[in-house]
Simulated assay, not measured.
Amino acid sequence: MEGVGGDGASQMAPLAKWRNDFSRTFQYYLDRSTPHPVQRWLGTLAAAAIYVLRVYFVQGFYIVSYGLGIYILNLLIGFLSPKIDPELEALDGASLPTKGSDEFRPFIRRLPEFKFWYAITKAFCVAFFMTFFTVFDVPVFWPILLCYWIVLFVLTMKRQIVHMIKYKYVPFNLGKQRYTGKKSAASSSGSSRD
């Protein structure tokens, strides 16, 4: 009895070891890519371009593209939204400032940039993989899907922008503000003579 169970376990051990090694290696390279956002996004842009070219040359898989667009729109909303939404949760100490006299609190995203990038990259890879299976190539009139997605995008972004204006937050880091100070009267009068 022991021999039969031992053979099954010994055959599964290399598979589990390979999966564990692959997972560690993948995580290692994922961690190394963290401080390089420009290179990461260029890689995602390349993956998106490959996917678009695949759909263009195959002339199909519009449902997959529509689903990908809806998923990316959902991720974008999470990326642009604050972690603690003042409309949905009770106001506690971590809310956004609403008055000029309130203390400055940095904008914390519901979906951080790295997770946003990772989810979009993974979505493009999965969608590209799906284009190799004809079961996902459902015949549809793609201009209708495109128009519906554009309307959905405009309405969703309008709602998000209204929310940003209402609660006075900007979801983008514009960098550190630099103050140049006042110019002296002598330097401004000297430049007017020239």
Rank of each mutant, 00 (worst) to 15 (best):
I150R: 01
V126N: 03
L45P: 00
I144D: 04
K158Y: 13
G67C: 12
E87D: 15
V154L: 12
Q59L: 01
I165M: 13
G43I: 01
D102H: 15
S95M: 08
P82C: 03
C147G: 11
V4Q: 13
N20K: 09
K122D: 09
T121I: 00
I70A: 05
G6R: 14
G60K: 04
G175T: 05
F133R: 14
A16G: 05
M157T: 05
R19S: 11
G69F: 00
M130E: 09
Y56W: 13
S191T: 12
P97T: 11
R109K: 15
L68I: 00
W18H: 12
K183R: 15
V162W: 07
Q177I: 10
D31M: 09
V138Y: 15
L75A: 07
Q59N: 09
W41Y: 12
C125Y: 08
L15T: 09
F153M: 08
L76S: 08
R159M: 04
L145S: 02
L91F: 10
Q39F: 09
G181A: 06
M157Y: 06
E2H: 10
S33F: 03
T121M: 06
L73P: 00
Q177R: 15
G78P: 02
M1V: 10
F61H: 09
E103R: 15
S95W: 09
I144N: 05
G100N: 15
A186K: 14
L152M: 12
T34F: 04
Y169A: 03
E103Y: 13
I84R: 11
I50L: 08
G100T: 12
V58D: 10
Q11N: 07
F128N: 02
W18M: 09
P14G: 06
R109T: 03
I72G: 00
F116C: 02
Y62L: 01
Y29P: 01
M130Y: 06
K166F: 02
G93W: 11
R32W: 05
M12V: 04
V52L: 08
A123W: 00
D31H: 12
F133M: 15
F141K: 12
L88G: 10
V135Y: 13
A123E: 00
A90E: 14
D21L: 07
F26L: 05
A90V: 06
F26S: 04
V151K: 10
V138P: 01
T44Y: 04
T131I: 04
L88P: 01
L75V: 06
F107H: 10
K182N: 07
S189Q: 14
N74I: 11
A13E: 14
S95V: 09
M12T: 04
L155K: 10
C125F: 05
R40T: 11
L75C: 13
P171T: 11
E113Q: 14
M12A: 13
M130H: 06
P143K: 09
A13I: 07
W149C: 00
L155N: 09
L111M: 10
V58G: 02
K182E: 08
W149H: 11
V140D: 06
G78Q: 07
Q11F: 08
S101F: 11
F26V: 03
K115E: 08
T25P: 00
G6A: 09
F26D: 02
S189H: 14
A16E: 09
F22H: 03
A47C: 06
S192C: 14
F172R: 06
A90T: 12
R54A: 03
L96A: 02
P106W: 04
G181E: 02
F172E: 07
P112I: 06
G8Q: 04
Y29A: 05
Y51C: 00
Y179I: 04
A47Y: 01
